[in-house]
Amino acid sequence: MSIGSTSRNHHWIPQCYLKGFSRSRSKNAKLFVVDAIGRKTFNTVPRNIASARDFNRIEIDGVSPDQIESDFSHFEGNVDRALQRVIESRQLGNTEDHNLILNLIALLSARNPRTRENSRQFQEKVIKQMMGLTVAKKERYEASYKQAIEAGFMTSHDDIAYETIRDFVKNDQYTIEVPTTRHIEQELRLVDTILPLLGERNWLLLRAPANTSGFVTSDHPVVLQWSSHRERGFFNSPGFALRDTEVIFPISNELAMIGSFEVNNEVIDANIKVMAVINGAIIAHSNRQVYARDDRFQYSLSRDVIRWGADLLKDLASPSVSSL
């Protein structure tokens, strides 16, 4: 990248985190990737995954478009060093390192394409309902149009026949796009809400068994689930403030964290079954891709059968986002 140019390839999962799942914790070390939608597996470096063009680009007068990306890069530098210390010591480390990792968990919980699309769909649904009400009666449409002119959003030269707008809305000939800047504002507010709730939890640090490929991660690596494994639902969703819930977060292929209100802070050497169940939860919560050191990782989606990473595509029967 030349001096003065703007970064355009933005990671929603930092490279400093992803490299912890390779063999050497290097940006140039390759990860094994299982792509459920593409129905393929491949090896690649962290730079090529969990990223999108202009994902963090903002449009605010007087502010550089890549200001947020630059701020995140500074934060990720601090997180990189904290992760390195925790991985080397195999302990959660000092308060500062622990807080940096909790900040990373909060950020990764709020910032990902799936959350953005869910937000966009919700806003689209609300706006389309409002549009339907607006054009339900000609008098209501004309009053709304007059208010838009008075507010400066339109001029009298923009006049469009009521019947044209009514048919346009009725035939659902449009979609609603949410500016990236709006998404980022919402995400940062959500981080401020999630972070103190993470701090109130106690945390188990699980260490993967020796001579295994260890823990996996994904393009949506923070798992929030019921501790009792009850079914999720619209009226029965786990929340960061609710008891009987656990937050699972893989730190590297050697370490994973589980945060709960009901556990004590301690370090546990996980056996293969526990590791496989955790990997199964991470896989089930992923959006599209799973990342591992190699294809020899072990996972359990049923809690009864332990499978190898090379078999994962066979277990992911439906190549859709919702299947994960």
Rank of each mutant, 00 (worst) to 15 (best):
S5M: 11
S7R: 14
N9S: 01
N9T: 06
P14V: 05
P14C: 07
L18M: 11
K19V: 02
K19Q: 07
F21P: 02
S26T: 12
S26F: 04
G38I: 12
R39D: 05
R39G: 01
F42A: 04
S51M: 14
A52G: 09
V63C: 08
S70A: 12
F72G: 05
H74D: 14
N78R: 15
D80V: 01
D80G: 15
E88L: 13
Q91E: 14
G93R: 06
N94T: 00
T95F: 12
L100T: 01
L104D: 04
A106T: 14
A106D: 10
S109N: 08
A110M: 08
R111M: 00
N112K: 12
P113Y: 10
R114V: 10
R114Q: 03
R116A: 04
E124L: 02
K125A: 01
G132I: 13
T134V: 13
K138P: 03
A143W: 07
S144W: 13
Y145F: 15
K146C: 12
E150D: 09
A151Q: 12
F153L: 05
D159K: 15
I160P: 08
T164K: 13
I165G: 06
V178M: 13
T180I: 14
T181M: 11
R182K: 14
I184A: 10
L188D: 09
L190S: 12
L190M: 07
D192E: 15
T193E: 14
L195H: 13
L195I: 08
L195Q: 00
L197V: 06
L198Q: 06
L198K: 09
L204D: 00
L205N: 02
A208H: 12
A208V: 14
T212W: 08
S213M: 06
G214S: 11
V216W: 00
T217Y: 01
S218L: 05
H220N: 14
V222G: 02
V222C: 02
V223L: 13
L224I: 05
Q225F: 07
W226R: 04
S228H: 14
R230M: 02
E231I: 03
R232A: 08
R232L: 07
G233Y: 11
F235D: 13
N236F: 10
P238D: 06
F240K: 07
F240W: 14
A241L: 10
T245N: 03
V247H: 03
V247W: 07
S252Y: 04
S252M: 00
N253E: 00
N253P: 00
A256Q: 09
M257Y: 15
F261C: 07
F261T: 11
D269Q: 08
N271K: 13
K273G: 04
M275I: 03
A276V: 00
A281W: 05
N287M: 12
N287W: 10
R288L: 00
R288Q: 15
Y299R: 03
S300G: 05
L301W: 10
S302F: 10
G309Y: 08
K314N: 09
S318H: 08
P319A: 01
S322G: 10
